[in-house]
Every structure is written in structure tokens, then in C-alpha cells.
Amino acid sequence: KEFRPGDKVVLPPYGVGVVAGIAQRSVSGVSRAYYQVDFPGSRSKAYVPVEAPHSVGLRKAL
């Protein structure tokens, strides 16, 4: 896996977040693995496909 729990990442347009782990989510009846990204200071979460994280701009924070 490219990202691990605890990694600081950037996800446009949300900003800097932390990978909380990998979650299985069902979309249109198909279960897939997603990185769960939490954003400190907020209750917001984002789910990014493990198979294509760069397709939505997910990258490691510098």
C-alpha cells in the first residue's frame, strides 16, 4: 500500500489530512477498499480509492 495509517497527506480541495486507515465501502453493490482520510480540527472525512489515489490528487504532505 502506498499510504499507511498516520501518514500526513494533501487532498485537494480539502487540504492537509491524516490517513486513518483502510475501509471497505460498497458503491453500486461493489465492495472496494478506500483510504479514510481525517482532517484535524474538523469532523470531515474523505474516502479515496486505494487502487487509484492519485486520480483524485491524494499525495503525501511535505
Rank of each mutant, 00 (worst) to 15 (best):
residue 1 K to T: 14
residue 1 K to I: 14
residue 1 K to V: 15
residue 1 K to C: 15
residue 2 E to N: 09
residue 2 E to G: 10
residue 3 F to S: 01
residue 4 R to P: 09
residue 4 R to L: 12
residue 4 R to V: 10
residue 5 P to K: 12
residue 5 P to V: 14
residue 5 P to S: 07
residue 5 P to T: 12
residue 6 G to D: 02
residue 6 G to M: 03
residue 6 G to T: 02
residue 6 G to Y: 02
residue 7 D to I: 03
residue 7 D to C: 11
residue 8 K to E: 08
residue 9 V to C: 04
residue 9 V to Y: 05
residue 10 V to K: 04
residue 10 V to Q: 05
residue 10 V to M: 08
residue 10 V to N: 05
residue 11 L to G: 00
residue 11 L to E: 01
residue 13 P to C: 15
residue 13 P to A: 06
residue 14 Y to M: 15
residue 14 Y to W: 12
residue 14 Y to A: 02
residue 15 G to R: 04
residue 15 G to V: 00
residue 16 V to N: 08
residue 17 G to E: 00
residue 17 G to Y: 00
residue 18 V to C: 11
residue 19 V to I: 15
residue 19 V to S: 02
residue 21 G to S: 09
residue 21 G to I: 04
residue 21 G to N: 07
residue 21 G to L: 08
residue 22 I to G: 00
residue 22 I to N: 01
residue 23 A to F: 14
residue 23 A to V: 15
residue 23 A to H: 12
residue 25 R to L: 14
residue 25 R to S: 07
residue 26 S to M: 14
residue 27 V to F: 08
residue 27 V to L: 08
residue 28 S to G: 14
residue 28 S to I: 04
residue 29 G to F: 01
residue 29 G to R: 04
residue 29 G to T: 02
residue 29 G to Q: 02
residue 31 S to V: 14
residue 31 S to D: 09
residue 33 A to R: 11
residue 33 A to N: 11
residue 33 A to D: 14
residue 34 Y to I: 02
residue 34 Y to V: 03
residue 35 Y to V: 04
residue 36 Q to S: 04
residue 36 Q to T: 08
residue 37 V to Q: 01
residue 37 V to W: 00
residue 37 V to A: 00
residue 38 D to W: 14
residue 38 D to R: 08
residue 38 D to V: 14
residue 39 F to C: 15
residue 39 F to T: 00
residue 40 P to F: 12
residue 40 P to Y: 11
residue 40 P to T: 06
residue 41 G to C: 15
residue 41 G to Q: 11
residue 41 G to A: 12
residue 43 R to H: 13
residue 44 S to H: 14
residue 44 S to Q: 14
residue 45 K to G: 05
residue 47 Y to K: 01
residue 47 Y to D: 02
residue 47 Y to A: 02
residue 48 V to W: 03
residue 48 V to E: 01
residue 48 V to Q: 00
residue 49 P to H: 03
residue 50 V to D: 00
residue 50 V to H: 02
residue 50 V to E: 02
residue 50 V to Q: 03
residue 51 E to D: 14
residue 51 E to S: 09
residue 51 E to I: 07
residue 52 A to G: 08
residue 52 A to K: 08
residue 53 P to C: 11
residue 53 P to L: 05
residue 53 P to Q: 06
residue 53 P to E: 04
residue 54 H to A: 11
residue 54 H to T: 08
residue 54 H to V: 05
residue 55 S to H: 09
residue 56 V to I: 07
residue 56 V to C: 15
residue 56 V to G: 10
residue 56 V to W: 05
residue 56 V to Y: 07
residue 57 G to D: 06
residue 57 G to S: 04
residue 57 G to Q: 06
residue 58 L to V: 04
residue 58 L to M: 14
residue 58 L to I: 09
residue 59 R to Y: 06
residue 59 R to P: 03
residue 60 K to H: 15
residue 60 K to I: 09
residue 60 K to C: 14
residue 62 L to P: 14
